[in-house]
């Protein structure tokens, strides 16, 4: 085990706190206002176009910290490895973890590794936890959202989920799909530090845009209206979703955020996004409106019709025709 840590883990993740190999990491954080989060990653396949489980494990956690209005400062990493898992693959995953952490400007300061007998885990599971320092003057929350606020997204939806699903289903055009898995800390911090109109942010991961917007409606008792024609979707993603009978609105993203923005600051926000590689296709896709009867998310369709967007439910089953 010690060998595994010294020869494989430390070299990829290198930083002072970790190198001490103490029982706990000591951190110097110049703030008493922190965010703290954790998530576990069990994705299948482990490697996919645009990323792997390691990159995902870092991005997922730093993105959760960023959308809460904080700058990530430290991560914990736990690996649960099935006996017999190939060491070369582990190295590859660790290298991606190290690389993504560096890009996100965050150190992995503590961790744990367990090997379990074969069959007790599916190759490798990863858990990450993270601490972030809240950005001064930034206070995000559902309670800030008001009628008239705009809904912004930093790019195309459905890329991650459709990549995973089509790789699993071995679809022919899987090579045209690429996960959007990315660390959003840079872009989000830039936005929060340079604008003042952002009221709320969330990363639309599981359940996709549909889940995030429904959470907004439920938690604010306001309604949300979006326009289908304004939502960026890559044609290959749309084609894969149509073929398998999925609604792209419900498909997971791993490099996207939804921001609720006051109308006055939409221009500034869009400008900052579009100057950043991860926000080139940023769009205002709708707005917050009064509730008529019950809080709802509604979409204006391509043909000018209207329908609601439900909180995603159930597992989608392959269709008969």
């Amino acid at each position: 085990m010690d060998d595994l840590i010294r020869q494989h883990i430390l070299p990829s993740l290198k930083n002072d706190a970790l190198d001490e190999l103490g029982d706990s990491a000591r951190l110097n954080v110049a703030s008493n206002s922190l965010c703290f989060t954790t998530d576990s990653y069990v994705v299948k396949p482990l490697f996919f176009n645009g990323g792997d489980i390691g990159k995902l494990a870092v991005c997922g956690t730093v993105n959760d910290l960023a959308v809460a209005g904080s700058k990530p400062v430290a991560l914990a990493l736990s690996l649960i490895i099935e006996d017999g898992f190939e060491i070369e693959l582990l190295d590859k995953i660790l290298a991606n973890i190290g690389e993504t952490a560096r890009q996100s400007n965050v150190d992995i300061v503590t961790g744990d590794t367990k090997t379990v007998e074969s069959g007790a885990a599916d190759r490798i599971f990863i858990n990450t936890a993270g601490i972030g320092v809240r950005l001064a003057g930034v206070d995000l929350g559902f309670d800030k959202i008001a009628v008239g606020d705009k809904i912004m997204i930093n790019g195309t939806i459905g890329d991650h989920g459709m990549t995973i699903i089509s790789q699993r289903e071995e679809l022919k055009f899987q090579s045209q799909l690429k996960s959007d898995c990315a660390s959003l800390t840079g872009l989000i911090c830039e936005l929060l530090e340079n604008t003042s109109g952002i009221k709320f942010m969330r990363d639309p991961t599981r359940g996709g845009l549909a889940a995030t917007l429904n959470e907004i409606a439920r938690s604010t008792a306001l309604s949300v209206e979006i326009r289908e024609t304004d939502i960026p979707v890559r044609p290959a993603v749309q084609a894969a979703a149509d073929m398998l009978g999925f609604d792209v609105l419900t498909i997971a993203n791993e490099g996207k955020f939804v921001a609720v923005v006051s109308p006055e600051s939409t221009d500034d926000c869009l400008k900052i996004c579009r100057n950043h590689p991860l926000g080139k296709e940023a769009k205002i896709i709708g707005e917050v409106v009064e509730t008529r009867d019950v809080p709802l998310v509604e979409i204006e369709t391509r043909i000018g019709g209207k329908r609601i967007v439900q909180m995603p439910y159930g597992r989608e089953l392959p269709r008969i025709c």
Binding site: T301, R302, I303, G304, G305, K306, R307, C321
Partner: peptide
């Protein structure tokens, strides 16, 4: 498939 397309595109509403 017609049923789903009709609902999904909000055709009844127009």
């Amino acid at each position: 498939t017609h049923t789903v397309s009709i609902f999904r595109n909000g055709i009844r509403s127009i």
